[in-house]
């Protein structure tokens, strides 16, 4: 897995809540059996209508060029378990996505969050105030520091920093770019012991 320690980049603002995985990558593109070529398919049915690019969709605007951090609103990545959504965003060129927790809604849907960690891509949950300031500033640069668990918006009137949540296990994997399956396989004895001790209501093969 690709490591993630610290990244500073320009952000692209997508002022929408509940961005779902069908929007990120429509189902008809899930027929591929490899992991590459998803970048150009990102937001396909939102960025173009009837084959014509929607000019004011952020991904079609000049500032999208070179942006590496996507900023959206609550509950980003809700919907299906398709990891293709993370592949599409990261292959397009983003390294992280920032979204606020607000009201009862979290920044990210659970499965999207997990899928991100597995791909060296970082979901960064921030406060609503933090996101609002980025939107108000119309963008700018952001630094995500996984080591310190901080995110900093470099705004015209100065830097704003806050911490963001990331599970310890995922953080370690990301910092060191570890092979998670390989590490889990070190526990094969514990797994075997569990299998031998457990009760199973008999799989009756027919």
């Amino acid at each position: 897995m690709e490591a993630f320690v610290r990244h500073r980049g320009r952000c692209l603002l997508l002022d929408r809540a509940n961005v779902d995985t069908d929007a990120i990558i429509p189902a008809r593109f899930l027929k591929k059996i490899d992991r590459v070529g998803f970048g150009e398919l990102l937001f396909m049915d939102v960025k173009q209508k009837d084959g014509v690019p929607v000019p004011d969709f952020p991904l079609n605007r000049p500032e999208a060029e070179g942006a590496t951090i996507l900023v959206a609103r609550q509950n980003f990545g809700c919907g299906s378990s398709r990891e293709h959504a993370v592949w599409a965003i990261s292959q397009w060129g983003f390294r992280a996505v920032v979204a606020p927790q607000g009201g009862t809604s979290p920044g990210f849907a659970d499965i999207f969050r997990n899928n991100s960690y597995k791909n060296g891509f970082l979901p960064v949950e921030v406060s609503e105030t933090f996101a609002d300031r980025l939107f108000a500033a119309g963008g700018g640069e952001v630094t995500v520091d996984l080591e310190k668990r901080t995110v900093t918006a470099h705004l015209p009137d100065g830097d704003v920093t806050e911490t963001f949540p990331v599970p310890d296990g995922a953080r370690r994997m990301l910092l060191e770019g570890l092979d998670e399956i390989g590490l889990s396989l070190h526990h094969v004895e514990a797994i075997t012991a569990y299998e031998q001790a457990r009760w199973e209501p008999g799989v009756m093969q027919v």
Binding site: S80, E83, N114, N115, N119, E180
Partner: peptide, 9 residues
């Protein structure tokens, strides 16, 4: 539900 990396795991 789980993602494809987790399926592999």
């Amino acid at each position: 539900g789980i993602g494809t990396s987790e399926v592999e795991h």
